[in-house]
Design a protein around this nucleic acid. Sequence first.
DNA 1: CTAAGTGCAAATGATTTGCAGGTAT
DNA 2: ATACCTGCAAATCATTTGCACTTAG
Lengths: 147, 147
Amino acid sequence: MSRLAKERYAVMIEKLKRSGLKSTPQRLAIMRVLSENKEHPSVEAINKRLQKKFPGISQATVYRNIMLIKSLGEVLEIGFAGGGSRYDGRKPYSHPHVVCLECGKIIDPELASLRDMTREIAAGSGFEIKSFRLDFFGLCPACRNRK
Amino acid sequence: MSRLAKERYAVMIEKLKRSGLKSTPQRLAIMRVLSENKEHPSVEAINKRLQKKFPGISQATVYRNIMLIKSLGEVLEIGFAGGGSRYDGRKPYSHPHVVCLECGKIIDPELASLRDMTREIAAGSGFEIKSFRLDFFGLCPACRNRK
DNA sequence: CTAAGTGCAAATGATTTGCAGGTAT
DNA sequence: ATACCTGCAAATCATTTGCACTTAG
């Protein structure tokens, strides 16, 4: 477990306790997966990963806990139109993603030109901006070669 | 019908004919709504709008035709996680949106700083970028005042 | 103890599809 | 004529919810 993952996990536990919610084994395990997994896993992927340690854990439990963790502000949901959300527990705040249309891989790119965008939008539209969503879609290096 | 709307509508008809597909009244009406409606309407909104002229038009017909128009590259689908896509037939290419979390209003903002973003991402990630999706979420001026 | 949480199965809600007629070309 | 379309209703698919049972604090 990396330093960042440990830190993220600790923050989640902290918020959980502060909220007077229970620390069930399933819940802690879900938090652990979210804090260390870099793949932006889907609910299905999280469930699959947990089957080893919790045979028979319910998808409903995974969904309910992710919702809860989201309400604590500790996981970012990256939902797509066609259904099938992915989750980022390492950086639970708005940030850009690059999604491979072929294999579904998702990475967090560097994007210096992002800086003043939100400010520019707020000034131009009169909206009070709360969050953003920026996704680039394309083919990852591996899938490009495979063609 | 504005000049832009007329133009968009003409392009859609053109592509439709070029593809050897039929010009049914329902299909033409859907294209017309998509080419002139600035509200980024949902399927439900489009259906509602058409009920006057086509009592009993099926949601399925609207869905099927939007899919078809999308496959012609003539409408941009703005799909949201919680379900409920919105459509933009006036600018059927990737461009940013500002979405009101309260009333669902969607506008097309100016965003000069968008310029080199795609290039920057492609260079940094090795991905071949095909499209992007940039949404800002917040409160529109009207909803801000209402608080 | 007892409020929360879990597993299971049924319910949802947007979208899709199969089928039995219609209709544009 | 006939391939394409439409309306209707049933089927999907991810997600949510009701319920009876279990468990953390």
